[in-house]
Design a protein around this nucleic acid. Structure first.
Lengths: 125, 125
DNA sequence: ATAGAATTTGCAACTTAATTGCAAATTTGA
DNA sequence: TCAAATTTGCAATTAAGTTGCAAATTCTAT
């Protein structure tokens, strides 16, 4: 388990633990742990502020969250299915590719997001 | 002007013309042409369906729209300011970099989005 | 030109993700 | 163990985007 999770209290810990397994939306989290949505969103905000989790929005503007743990979960591209709008995590970009990309920005980069869109295998069936 | 715009009627044309100059949100478009927001959104939907414009969402889930005109406006990365959430268009990716990126996806890619985040020059002042 | 069909518009109501105020409940810590 | 600080649930709110419907506009065939 990622060290960052050790000092978290109850609900933040539960959320971070679930996200360490799988990228999830606020609604999916709410279905897994039985607390009010306001609590879910407040905990998500705290975890984002502490940089323990990352947010990825799908094309409908729905936020998905994943653990931000350098060793187990480095920054990686995502694939969004244009049918079901599910988000898939892909393998991490290597440093040469990150470097190549960063040359396109005239401003200092704090974060890079790469998202592919298409139809996932589930929806192709 | 991009050929695609020639056959558009009044409001779709106005919107496409504005977007050929600058990436804009629905609200910004509404401030520029005086029509109901439902009309703005309906026209945006039509233009998206015809693939005359493209949508980029900022981190707040607000859609920004830009002309999708191969010659004048090929697919390119965007920069989002984490302070003002403004979207900037950057220079287009070259084909080698697109190829390198596409190797990360196990699914067939219909679209690639690259977004950098940081603080823009306006907000740094 | 003009009547009828088809399309587009404005308005108001609605949907959905996310946020917020507030009082109650829980946790913390001296 | 009791007061202060934090967290929670509930209900109301915000904001982007959507939709139903009737009125207005545009298109088309004669």
């Amino acid at each position: 388990m990622c060290d960052k999770l050790k000092n978290l209290k109850n609900n933040e810990f539960k959320i971070a633990l679930l996200l360490s397994q799988k990228i999830l939306s606020a609604k999916e989290l709410q279905n897994l742990i039985n607390v009010d949505k306001a609590t879910i969103y407040r905990n998500i905000k705290n975890l984002l502020k502490k940089e323990i989790i990352r947010e990825i929005k799908n094309s409908n503007g729905v936020g998905f969250y994943e653990l931000n743990c350098k060793i187990h979960n480095p920054i990686h591209p995502h694939f969004e299915c244009i049918i079901c709008n599910k988000i898939y995590c892909l393998k991490a970009l290597n440093s040469e590719d990150v470097l190549a990309l960063s040359n396109y920005s005239p401003f200092e980069i704090k974060e890079i997001e790469v998202k592919f869109k298409g139809i996932c295998n589930e929806c192709k069936k």
